[in-house]
Design a binder for these strands. Sequence first.
DNA 1: CTGAAAGCGCTAACAA
DNA 2: TTGTTAGCGCTTTCAG
Lengths: 343, 343
Amino acid sequence: MSRPPIETRRPLTLRDVSEASGVSEMTVSRVLRNRGDVSEATREKVLEAAKSLGYVPNKIAGALASQRVNLVGVIIPSLSNLVFPEVLSGISAELEDTGLQPVVGVTNYSPEKEEAVLYEMLSWRPSGVIIAGLEHTEAARAMLENAGVPIVEIMDVDGQGVDSVVGISHRRAGLHMAEAIIAAGYRRIGFLGTKMPEDHRARKRYDGFKEGLAEAGITLADEEFYQGGSALAKGREMTETILRRTPDLDFLYYSNDMIGAGGLLWCLDNGIDVPGRIGLAGFNGVDLLEGLSVRLATMDACRREIGRKAAEIIAGRPHQGLIGGEVIELEPVLELGDTIRKG
Amino acid sequence: MSRPPIETRRPLTLRDVSEASGVSEMTVSRVLRNRGDVSEATREKVLEAAKSLGYVPNKIAGALASQRVNLVGVIIPSLSNLVFPEVLSGISAELEDTGLQPVVGVTNYSPEKEEAVLYEMLSWRPSGVIIAGLEHTEAARAMLENAGVPIVEIMDVDGQGVDSVVGISHRRAGLHMAEAIIAAGYRRIGFLGTKMPEDHRARKRYDGFKEGLAEAGITLADEEFYQGGSALAKGREMTETILRRTPDLDFLYYSNDMIGAGGLLWCLDNGIDVPGRIGLAGFNGVDLLEGLSVRLATMDACRREIGRKAAEIIAGRPHQGLIGGEVIELEPVLELGDTIRKG
DNA sequence: CTGAAAGCGCTAACAA
DNA sequence: TTGTTAGCGCTTTCAG
């Protein structure tokens, strides 16, 4: 079933509206942007002409002329990670009434791809850039430094940012989780996470976690890593694997909630007493999982809030002058749930 | 801890590279775009100058001059629906090597927001637009018709598209699910879904489902709708509610996999025999859930594939001439899983 | 309140 | 292989 081709006519310009309304291009432009004083009469004439023609302004030309682009570049590692759509949603909510629009680029956790995406974004001369993480290639870092627009690095505060930074300390998140686990009396502790050298935040949590254990004179009893696949399913598998290998583990710390939920479900299916026989904890506070009958212990990473604050910095910067260099550290909240023994 | 402000120097232009390399702007431009023949010697000179200056081309100016924009507008209702990030991922994969870049706009299922987002997108004169659904405001439809670039409406084929269409028939998806359920011997059937007047695809599945039941002389025994909140949790709640109200139901059809999974978990927790006492089915084939011990019956909506095909149409159009009007209907695959009785 | 002129930074088209 | 010229469609600036 095919229909006649869309006709490719010349796109309408300001001039068309100008001619149709008998008003100069300049005045038409003023009306369409709500700038300067225009008499109500001309205003209406113009608006009507524009509407009846179906005129859509050309922002390319507008941006070139005004040297102003209402776009904010947002660079994130992934859209399937669940965490990032939430950050995005915070950004998008905060930007709602500012006239700014987020443009998303995805890097798949590849520094090279990140560099390429950043280059591409900067070539559109956005009003600001929000980028996940503090670790970038040298070239990317140079681009960020020279972009001449506000840059906000998000998610992580453990390191040195280029301009502003909004996030949590993943190192301390891991450390605090270790402390809570030890305080609850667990001693034979296993770690389960992703095998992703480029997931710096997961790594920092891992490091912080081990640090926290070390403070209590404990070392990780076992660990297990995975790559790709459905996180829930991987959580099951890994849990089975690690418990088979090291049966006396009494706690499993998962580097994210999805694998943690998989592990939890596996334990429940297999009649393992949680948190009596074994305790579990994840990371992120994914609300997706709120419907589980047993609530997994986790740490909320303040994802929406991070998005909001980052967007706020970009949107606010022009007003408060180009200050730059804010560092906003949010405090992740430990939620004990039902998978860590109380007292 | 604050650092000195980012210095706001004049952005570099082609002219700066031209002067630094002693080559004309035009030749610099050619080198940077890999266009036309340039001697290896000049080429290297230019590249080095550009790199050492840290020059990033201005696509705004480039796009205006060349009347070409390597952006593809993608307009979707939501990023938290899980389905859409998957579609996006298909689009982004297909566009990978075409030089085209997706730009995402989110409508929150609001037709007015969709109209606004579309207007905004078209004002950047993208090379094409991919938009979810066939239902738009009159103004939005007019914009799509007059955009002068390929338009692909995705997800749904039940209705009349503006240009090309890639999707599945949600009506028939619902209908087939009804047939499968009846064939398995279930008779007292309940429906659980979202209370979203603007989710036309869910509505079409609902209609198709009832149609399928009607063919067998059956009517829906009960139904329950929800709005907002964690889908998994809502699935639990609604399942409890509907079964309390209508205890003799022997099948529950959920309008998406997440609430379906919530219902499944509730049944398992409450020792209800699935699929013996009651059968369950969802919709979407969300791999996120692959780790459940009992696999929910579902219908894969071919989300990545839809994204791929849509992007392929946009990317391919310039080559095969502006034909327009393809309609690609994909066939959702019924996956019986473990929650529908066999035979 | 309205209009005219001069670009924004780049590329198409042509000339050398 | 390289350079020159003339815009792309809009906004800034300044003059009426």
